[in-house]
Design a protein around this nucleic acid. Structure first.
Length: 162
DNA sequence: GCCAACGTTGGC
DNA sequence: GCCAACGTTGGC
């Protein structure tokens, strides 16, 4: 099992929107970056644990916990000419973009990016690196545990199991 | 709104 | 396959 951080702009899709989804589940569609796509396609498995992160907003940071609930499958928005995410080079026979489904497990307090940066234990976190723009980044198990247990006070049971 | 840091595009 | 121009991301 792996750990991830997934960014969303709350103006478009917030933690509250996430929780309001049927079964608290959303297709993570609209990703149009190859590295992020490859993470979903090649590495993300059902049960992988996810930090849900608000980006490009007043208070950027981690706001919830989620998990991968379905492995990668074709992103339907790429075939829809009316969609903002339409990709004329993609066909149902040869899809270019895939995504996973993600289920929200719980809202957490805001752990802001400045708080994350203040901990030397997290200095190497991928999402905190200068110039990082990836909307999906891997999280090291030690970083996951530190954030869950030390910052959120949540027993990261699944972090130690398996 | 600024702008640094990336990623993508397309001419050559 | 290079690389300049352009577009996007996202913290500040």
């Amino acid at each position: 099992m792996r750990y991830w951080l997934m960014k969303s702009e709350p103006a478009g899709f917030s933690i509250d929107d996430f929780l309001a989804m049927p079964n608290q589940t959303t297709p993570w569609d609209g990703v149009r970056n190859y590295q992020a796509r490859n993470f979903m396609r090649d590495q993300m498995k059902v049960g992988d644990q996810v930090f849900f992160y608000h980006s490009n907003c007043k208070e950027p940071g981690i706001v919830g916990l989620a998990e991968v609930s379905r492995a990668a499958y074709p992103d339907q928005t790429q075939f829809n000419p009316k969609s903002h995410y339409y990709d004329p080079k993609a066909t149902p026979e040869k899809p270019r973009w895939v995504h996973v489904d993600v289920r929200c497990l719980q809202k957490t307090r805001l752990v802001s990016i400045s708080e994350l940066r203040s901990h030397p234990e997290l200095a190497r976190m991928r999402t905190l690196q200068q110039g990082n723009r990836l909307s999906i980044t891997p999280v090291d198990p030690a970083e996951w545990r530190f954030i869950c247990e030390r910052l959120l006070g949540i027993k990261a049971a699944r972090a130690t199991a398996r």
